[in-house]
């Protein structure tokens, strides 16, 4: 019987180790740093302090998945941010911008390579305007099954209905030139449903509810903070 030398297994193991290593798609570029700088203001031009900016990248390797942070800093009292970030190659560099203030809820953004102006070593955000978010609740009291159709002007509305995640699904076929539309069905199990609309822009919202008794159409202006409406079906 022919014996396989132990060194053969070592070569095989080394080959697999190198293969795993080469499967890691993201690596940090040697001998390079990026300067990230910019300023955050309100639409009125007031400086925003405490805006957290992170440079992140997707880790999608054989052994781990997720997002890794390459740098992170907060804007100062003048709204300015200046930080040094690592760079990735290969990989996509993204910026995560979020407010940290408990007093006001601001827009947050995640933008990636193609969305911002970037040269080799400088990522200049310029002046970023962050708007305050408007939250509106529509409370629907009902005792029967119904279909709903929700149309809103702004394309940046986030919708939650209780904890039903399926409403967050977004069907491109429902879009027309101006309005975004979402539709769905709610059964009579819960007697009260709450639609929560969050947007940074004033928007007009059309809600159509249909049950066995008929069709009901409502229109709301989403332009006030913490506004809410109630509907009894």
């Amino acid at each position: 019987m022919k014996l396989v030398k132990p060194g053969f297994y070592g070569v095989i193991l080394l080959f697999f180790a190198l293969s795993l290593y080469s499967c890691t798609p993201v690596s940090i570029e040697n001998n390079k740093r990026i300067l990230v700088q910019g300023k955050f203001v309100t639409p009125e031009g007031t400086a925003l302090q405490g805006i957290r900016v992170s440079t992140i990248t997707d880790i999608n390797s054989f052994l781990s998945r997720g997002q890794g942070t390459l740098s992170e800093a907060l804007s100062d009292q003048n709204g300015n941010i200046s930080m040094v970030s690592l760079d990735v190659n290969p990989g996509i560099l993204c910026l995560d911008i979020t407010g940290t203030s408990n007093d006001r809820r601001l827009q947050s953004f995640t933008v990636c390579d193609s969305a911002f102006s970037r040269n080799e070593t400088l990522l200049d955000l310029g002046e970023w305007v962050l708007k305050e978010l408007i939250e509106t609740r529509i409370i629907i009291r009902h005792n029967s099954d119904f279909n709903y159709s929700l149309k809103f002007e702004s394309s940046s509305v986030e919708i939650n209905i209780n904890d039903w995640n399926e409403l967050n699904s977004y069907d491109e076929a429902d879009l027309d030139s101006k309005y975004s539309t979402r539709e769905g069905f709610i059964n009579s199990e819960n007697q009260v449903e709450t639609l929560k609309l969050i947007t940074a822009d004033n928007s007009r919202v059309n809600l159509q509810l249909q049950n066995a008794q008929g069709v009901y159409i409502y229109e709301f202006e989403v332009d006030e903070i913490d506004n809410h409406y109630e509907i009894d079906l």
Binding site: V26, N30, N31, I59, L70
Partner: peptide
């Protein structure tokens, strides 16, 4: 020789 916070190593020379 740097250890980054998400585990990837890199270096400056």
């Amino acid at each position: 020789y740097h250890d980054s916070k998400f585990g990837t190593n890199f270096r400056d020379s």
